[in-house]
Computed example of a mutant assay.
Amino acid sequence: MTSAPPVMVLGCGRSGTSIFGELFDGLDRYIYQSEPAFEAVLAADYSTPQAFKVPRESDLHPARPGLSFPLDRFLEVAPRARLFWIVRNPLDAVCSLRVGIAKRWGHHPRPPDWKDWLAEPLIARCAHHWAFLNRAGYAQVEHCATLVRFEEMIADPAQFWARICAALAIDPAANAPHLARWAKRVQNSNNKEFIEAQTSRSYSRPDHRVRVDRWRENLTDEEAAAIWDVVGETAQALGYRAPA
């Protein structure tokens, strides 16, 4: 029997990459690594299913701006790989990016001109980060990646995992306990079922009640408009509309 294909989860930080990636931590026979060194990706045993979330950049394997790794090199070692790019409403993503971007642009990969933006307001820096990754990064993988949405994952996690399992030819019935546990974690607001992804916890701020449309709690109308000035073209290409 052919093993499940390798998986790479990609997207701008604070867009659901971590919780989406953790779907594979226990799914079928996948071995999951969050933000591994790219050398570990190249050295992985592809005779068993492997899943990765956003590998770390490597001086030995330079990447084109927008991705943290050279796509062609990854596909050389994993030609059957399935890539997923998760995207989130830029206004909500900007609110979540603030902690990491405020720490000397702690989210990676950084835009090449990130230092030129350090004097700009924090929300402008976050907006530039979102726009660059979802433009330059996604453009590199668009031909071979499946686009998924944070909002769809939050709205119906069971339907979301069903779509992923179908894409990978994985039997949901054989993974039912794991899928049910994961789905309970995916919540729009904090409650007793919610368990945040491990690598996301240091970036959280207790300043909102919901995850979808959190920007309405965190941003003024003027701030939202300023963000849209930066992200608008890329956001619209990905199916998002300017705030009403």
Rank of each mutant, 00 (worst) to 15 (best):
T17Q: 09
I19L: 04
I19K: 00
I19N: 00
F20A: 02
F20Q: 05
F20Y: 05
G21I: 00
G21F: 03
E22Q: 15
E22P: 04
E22M: 14
L23D: 07
F24L: 07
D25H: 06
D25T: 01
G26H: 15
G26P: 10
G26Q: 11
G26R: 08
L27A: 03
D28Y: 08
D28P: 11
R29P: 00
R29C: 05
R29D: 15
R29L: 13
R29E: 09
Y30N: 04
Y30K: 10
Y30T: 10
Y30C: 05
I31R: 15
I31C: 13
Y32F: 15
Y32H: 15
Y32R: 07
Q33E: 13
S34D: 09
S34R: 06
E35T: 01
E35D: 07
P36D: 01
P36N: 03
F38S: 09
F38R: 06
F38E: 02
E39I: 10
E39V: 11
E39P: 04
A40F: 09
A40C: 01
V41R: 08
L42H: 02
L42A: 06
L42Q: 01
L42P: 09
L42G: 01
A43S: 13
A43C: 03
A43P: 11
A44W: 07
A44C: 01
Y46H: 03
S47W: 09
S47G: 10
T48G: 14
P49L: 14
P49C: 05
Q50D: 12
Q50F: 02
A51M: 03
A51L: 13
F52S: 08
F52Y: 03
F52I: 14
K53N: 14
K53A: 12
V54E: 11
V54F: 07
P55W: 00
P55V: 12
P55N: 07
P55K: 02
P55S: 14
R56H: 11
R56W: 04
E57K: 02
E57F: 09
E57M: 15
S58A: 11
D59G: 13
D59V: 14
L60H: 02
L60G: 08
L60M: 05
H61F: 14
H61V: 05
A63V: 08
A63S: 14
A63F: 05
R64Q: 14
R64K: 15
P65E: 06
P65S: 11
G66A: 03
G66D: 12
G66T: 01
S68A: 12
S68I: 02
F69L: 03
F69N: 04
F69Q: 06
P70A: 01
P70E: 07
L71F: 08
L71Q: 14
L71K: 09
L71H: 06
D72T: 11
D72P: 00
D72L: 01
D72I: 08
R73T: 13
F74D: 04
F74H: 03
E76T: 14
E76H: 13
A78V: 13
A78P: 11
A78Q: 10
A78D: 03
P79Q: 10
P79C: 05
P79H: 12
P79T: 12
